[in-house]
C-alpha cells in the first residue's frame, strides 16, 4: 500500500470522455485501481476536497469567467507533484477553442483556455479522448518511472501547442517531410483527413483541434 502512487482525477470544462476512456480498459480497470491509490475522482467517488497527490490528472479547459475553475487550476498545481493535462481540452483546448459565449443562462462564459496556458503542467496528452491503452501506458510509466516513455508528453506540455489539422500541412507537407503513410488520416477522431495523392487533405469543417494527427505523425518531433 505504501508504495502505491497517489492519483487524483480532476474535471474542469470537459465532457468527461477522457475519464470514460480510462474506464474503457474494461476488465483491466480493476487492475488499474489496484495498482494506484486513487484519492480523488468526483465522478467515481465521494471525496469532495482535492488532496495532495503524486499525480493529478486534469481533464478539461479552464473557463476564465468561472472564478472557481481558476481556483481549482491553481489548487491542482499546488497539490499535485506531477500535473498531467489529460486529453485535448486540457492540453490544447480542443472543442472549447470554438466557444465564444452568448448562451443562456450564462452568456458571459465564453473564454476557455487550455490548462497548459493557465498553469505549468508537467505533462500533456492530446487526443479526444486519448485511447484507453495510451492512458494506461502513461499511468504504467508513471508507476514505473519510465521517463523514456513519458518524454513526448513532457515535451508536449511545454510546447504550448495550438493544434489543428493544418499543423500537418504546415509542419509536414509544406516541409517536404510527408511520405504518405496515412496514419494521420486513420487517427483522426472526426475523420477529417482524407488522403489525396498520398497527402493528407484536412477538412477544416470537421476538425475539432484535438492534436492527434500531428502527434501520431512519425515525421514531426514531439
Amino acid at each position: 500500500m505504501e508504495d502505491k502512487i497517489t492519483v487524483a482525477h480532476v474535471q474542469l470544462s470537459s465532457c468527461c470522455g477522457c475519464l470514460i476512456s480510462l474506464v474503457d480498459t474494461y476488465e483491466k480497470f480493476l487492475d488499474v485501481l489496484n495498482s494506484i491509490d486513487l484519492v480523488y475522482c468526483q465522478t467515481l467517488m465521494d471525496a469532495r476536497e482535492i488532496p495532495e497527490a503524486d499525480v493529478i490528472l486534469v481533464e478539461g479547459a479552464v473557463c476564465l469567467e468561472d472564478h472557481h475553475a481558476l481556483e481549482v487550476a491553481r489548487e491542482v498545481r499546488k497539490k499535485g507533484k506531477t500535473v498531467v493535462a489529460l486529453g485535448a481540452c486540457a492540453a490544447l483546448g480542443c472543442i472549447t477553442r470554438f466557444a465564444k459565449g452568448g448562451q443562456m443562462p450564462k452568456p458571459v462564459q465564453g473564454s476557455f483556455s487550455s490548462l497548459t496556458e493557465i498553469i505549468r503542467c508537467d505533462m500533456a496528452i492530446p487526443g479526444c479522448p486519448p485511447s484507453p491503452e495510451l492512458i494506461l501506458g502513461v499511468i504504467t510509466a508513471l508507476i514505473k518511472g519510465d521517463e523514456e516513455y513519458l518524454k513526448p508528453f513532457r515535451r508536449y506540455a511545454v510546447c504550448k501547442c495550438e493544434s489543428c489539422g493544418c499543423d500537418l500541412i504546415i509542419n509536414v507537407v509544406n516541409k517536404s517531410l510527408c511520405m504518405g503513410c496515412g496514419i494521420c488520416s486513420a487517427s483522426c477522431p472526426t475523420r477529417a483527413i482524407e488522403m489525396v495523392d498520398g497527402r493528407p487533405v484536412v477538412s477544416p469543417q470537421l476538425c475539432v483541434k484535438c492534436g492527434v494527427c500531428s502527434f501520431q505523425c512519425p515525421r514531426i518531433e514531439i
Partner: peptide, 24 residues
Amino acid sequence: VGTPCQILSLRKALKYPVGFRHMV
C-alpha cells in the same frame, strides 16, 4: 504490409496509440 516508413509509423502508433482505441 508497408514500406519501411509505414512500418515505422505503425510502430510508433503501437507504442503511442493516442488516437487508436483498442488497436494495439
